[in-house]
Design a protein around this nucleic acid. Structure first.
Lengths: 342, 342
DNA sequence: ATCAGCTGTGCAAGCGCTTGCTCAAAATCC
DNA sequence: GGATTTTGAGCAAGCGCTTGCACAGCTGAT
């Protein structure tokens, strides 16, 4: 270790503050502060001096102090039901990326699909963040609006009148899927429903019905089943019983369970029955057979949600908007032509 | 809407503060503050009065102000390379859960495997959080230690002398896997390596070699390959060429790619070649064949990391410890007995 | 020379909360 | 009953930063 030329014997472990920089440069605290926040106001020479000292000592503003003074924290809250649900990571990633690029950090919390915990989290976040993104919130409209009165809120995959939201409808995807199945000779479809109360399940049911009618196909709605592999396993029994030739599951995970269940019952996928999922989760393309599915634009959803939130932050008066994103269809190996029954 | 009995015409939209409560109850601000932070110091009657008013008006302390006054933010930072990598969600979830239960919120950010971004994030987090958990950090030891000088840091899946870390070694899992393969008649193993510089890849290579020696099996290390499905696809070619009977891939995703690649080359898994992965990612059990793999205790890792961090927060002097967690072996359908060559 | 208008900087008042210290009243002791 | 301790509460000084306002020194128009 080389001897220090002069100055204090050791770099003080206390973090640099406006004051320490001000003292070193020989200006007032306000000037240093403004050198960062309103650089135009400061003379070029002074500013450069300040900035160079700041980078040398690795100055990082104390966020709490800034937050207290400005009333803004530069933090956004992202509430998801369960980050381990493969639906969310891409969304979270996109949201965090966008937020970061705009100078915001992201406080992540998961609600465990538990309305009570969700409400507590929302409340606790209030004093920590500038705005919140709520993904598939379970709470009633009341508590959510209560929060929205205090901080900008954007809903993802849930709409509440008068609030900004971004939702991904399966409509386009289901339409294409059912065209695809129809062309392959299928004349009926079983929909394996998930959480009955969720916006997303309702959307799927209604889209399936609408497009079935359009194509003259029959629809059976089974369930609700757990949106899990085991839920799919269970559902497989019901599918087999019904001698259905085509199945759409609430999500990809359930679809994989269904495929496994059907296989164990001696039914070939896609030979005997075609199975499709929803979400186009990361693994959907990696299984065998690869999963035919409806891709949800969740990266876009995450990014959009943050954009909408930042919009609201920038112009508080803004009227709420309900953005609707559309899905797409991805044909893979788990769907095929209907087989002539023996 | 019923008429309000008395009091102000409408609940002021400004958030409640210590002062507003103090005024209403008729005590000083300090008393209200202490009613929350040091309740023993306050008379029971006063305290109850304060608490009841507080809950009625939905008081939430201003975190910035508290942070400024105490120097603690009650926020932890969790840096992961990529939340969309299925390895991380369970870890993040467990970490967030543990932190939440101890009164801490979690700031999540992803580094995109990018050392520069990682360093910037670490620095920026410094002023926002009380401590950081760094998952598989890419940065050199220097910058990391620099951060650790300012705030407690816990490393996950990376060890740096003198720092607290928690790592999951594949040792136990590899041992069991290789016993399993040996019993099934395999006498050689191909290891498909991932990012050569990562601690985790080194660990895998050395464990594989050690246990191969123990069992008298041969080892071929191929790669490095991208730790992705495509990486596995590529690797499959090399595996087929070598006429290997057993393969261990760097991670589950690569393993799935390998299986697909082998299948496309006309090799049956596990008939012609057994394939195992690492991590026991959510989907590992859902594919067909279900993936034989080495399960990493990443929930435990996430929880432990947070615990270690909170320990350091509670008792700053504490000597750094390197916790090592062990993996386990999960036999599923992608591994089987070696087939007599024609 | 005079004065208005800039520019660049400093002053000082907070932002809402914590906390060491002070102090009055009540409880306890001898 | 007086001295001492305990209890409950308030005062006030910050924590580090932002920002409205004041003001000194220039510039350039008059």
């Amino acid at each position: 270790m080389t001897r220090r030329r002069s100055g204090p014997p050791s770099p003080s472990p206390t973090t640099a503050s406006l004051k320490s920089i001000a003292d070193e440069v020989g200006v007032s605290i306000s000037t240093v502060s403004r050198a960062f926040t309103r650089p135009e106001l400061i003379g070029e020479q002074t500013r450069n001096q300040i900035l160079s000292v700041a980078t040398r000592v690795g100055y990082q503003p104390n966020r709490s102090a800034r937050g207290l003074a400005t009333g803004r924290t530069a933090v956004l809250s992202l509430l998801v039901p369960d980050i381990a649900n493969p639906f969310f990571p891409p969304l979270v990633r996109a949201a965090e990326n966008r937020a970061y690029s705009q100078g915001y950090a992201v406080l992540l919390a998961h609600t465990d699909e538990h309305a009570e915990r969700e409400r507590r989290l929302m409340r606790e976040m209030l004093s920590r963040v500038d705005g919140l993104v709520l993904c598939s919130p379970r709470s009633a409209a009341g508590p959510i609006k209560e929060i929205a009165r205090q901080r900008p809120v954007v809903l993802v995959n849930r709409a509440i009148p008068g609030m900004t939201s971004v939702a991904c409808s399966v409509d386009v995807g289901v339409s294409a899927l059912m065209d695809h199945l129809h062309e392959l000779g299928h004349r009926g479809l079983v929909y394996l429903s998930g959480p009955a109360s969720s916006w997303s399940d309702k959307d799927k049911r209604s889209c399936v019905r609408r497009h079935a009618k359009r194509l003259g196909m029959t629809v059976d709605v089974l369930g609700p089943f757990q949106p899990s592999f085991d839920g799919g396993l269970t559902a497989a029994g019901a599918v087999a019983e019904r001698r259905s030739t085509a199945v759409l599951a609430y999500d990809d995970v359930m679809a994989l369970g269904t495929i496994r269940g059907l296989t164990e019952l001696g039914l070939d996928v896609p030979g005997s029955v075609s199975v499709a999922g929803c979400d186009d989760v990361m693994f959907a393309g990696m299984t065998m057979p690869a999963l035919t599915t409806i891709a949800m634009p969740n990266e876009l959803a995450g990014r959009t949600a943050v954009d909408l939130l930042l919009d609201q932050l920038a112009s508080p008066g803004r009227t709420p908007q309900e953005v609707s994103l559309s899905s797409s269809f991805v044909a893979r190996g788990s769907s095929g032509p209907v087989r002539r029954t023996a």
